[in-house]
Write a protein that binds this DNA or RNA. Sequence first.
DNA 1: TAAGAAATAAATTAAATACTAAAATACATC
DNA 2: GATGTATTTTAGTATTTAATTTATTTCTTA
Lengths: 92, 92
Amino acid sequence: MFEEKVGTVSKMLKSISHPLRLKILCLLQNGELSVGELQTQVKTTTANISQHLTLLRHQGIVTSRKEANYIYNRIADERVIQLIDTLQDLFC
Amino acid sequence: MFEEKVGTVSKMLKSISHPLRLKILCLLQNGELSVGELQTQVKTTTANISQHLTLLRHQGIVTSRKEANYIYNRIADERVIQLIDTLQDLFC
DNA sequence: TAAGAAATAAATTAAATACTAAAATACATC
DNA sequence: GATGTATTTTAGTATTTAATTTATTTCTTA
């Protein structure tokens, strides 16, 4: 792996290596979910989920759209979807 | 991904998500290298490399053998090799 | 057994992360 | 405009992580 890529890839891995964020990404594998829908499946506060989603957005891993007062989130990068698939293949 | 696996997988990802450790693992993709050989390619102190290797060993990602006063390191888990391959396919 | 090289260990400091709680924003409906 | 719900933001604290420095261990060879 080229030196320049190491930085990019490790940053991406760091973003998905938190248990809560990995859980969120697994839940988003099959399509978008609102913050509240995520919160019912991930046992923590809404504020905490929101903070982790903010981080994932800043990394370009998740993108969101607003509808009424719900915010729907989905995985923004196809490569991340493939990566999660690989993780499930290898480790599950 | 099952709840129990999320913890295991996120811990593994966290271990490989540091730029220096990712670099080390890329260098070990093609076979074992000594600490000194790694150090010539990864720009930091030997002590620092050693600390990161210790972490990778404790996570079961790297294993080592001693020969004379060299310690040769290699990736212990075939799944990690496949994961690094996937990362290179997807992001390089 | 003394000197030197390779690697680890331990201690310190600095920096980054994560969680909680409280306050603020945005929108919908009444 | 007031109320309620969804989400974000901010601030504070606690924890974890990383790098540096120094000391120690292990082995080799003279």
